[in-house]
Write a protein that binds this DNA or RNA. Structure first.
Lengths: 120, 120
DNA sequence: CACTTAGTTGAATAAATGTTCAACTATTAT
DNA sequence: ATAATAGTTGAACATTTATTCAACTAAGTG
């Protein structure tokens, strides 16, 4: 039984190791969400937006000025962050104010920065 | 001085807030690396590879079996992870064994999973 | 009311990215 | 030597994705 029934193009070298790891692997849905979360903060623009919102509640124009980008592109990214529940918004007159809505993000940033400062 | 000199298409609503946040913002290079790190683990395939390697040192074929993918696509992703210093490899005969080479990744995963389990 | 500004949205464009495929190297076994 | 297997690599392809542009809504101002 050196060949497996799956679509990978090789023999199983260490069947036991493979089985053991497979048992501990979370289901696909978990990885989907996990990778999705990291993909969300794996973009310079969104990184900066989140960093800024961690300092202060800000409206779209403020963010556009901080990032030196157009309202439109900021708004598009804010929509992405909103839909994923990472930021929250509140309307006041003409302006829409955004805030961070997730403690985990700040922790992820801290560890990420540790990594950067430790390695290249 | 309600108009700024930059390329954003709007007035500054809260000059003080903008200035304050701008002062605290790391330089672009930091954000580049930070977003780069998250982008790296923001992919299902690489997420699974890293999770597997956190359990056990594995060769490419083992990983191909665990993920049920071809050697080639696994190898391509391993090259990406290698170049960024997140995994390390060691050759032994025909086989190449990979291991995790970064404590931060595990921490990021833990917090990421906390987030998933807390939110949707 | 007409005008300006804050913000959103959809379509289009351009760039980045993951997988496949085929060719290749290197090591082991017959 | 020859064959088979582990792994890498570059090009091609398809998909995803970030920004731009233009049109739009909604709220405040003269």
């Amino acid at each position: 039984m050196s060949r497996n029934e799956f679509s990978c193009d090789c023999n199983i070298i260490h069947q036991e190791a493979v089985d053991e790891v497979l048992q501990k692997m979370p289901i696909d849905d978990k990885f989907n969400k996990l990778a999705g979360l990291f993909k969300l903060i794996g973009d310079q623009t969104r990184c900066k937006i989140l960093f800024a919102l961690d300092q202060k509640e800000m409206c779209v124009c403020d963010l556009a000025n901080v990032l030196n980008m157009t309202k439109s592109s900021i708004s598009h990214q804010l929509a992405v962050l909103r839909k994923s529940g990472i930021v929250r918004c509140r309307k006041n007159g003409k302006e829409v104010y955004y805030t961070l809505d997730d403690d985990h993000i700040v922790k992820l940033f801290e560890i990420g920065l540790e990594h950067i400062n430790h390695k290249g």
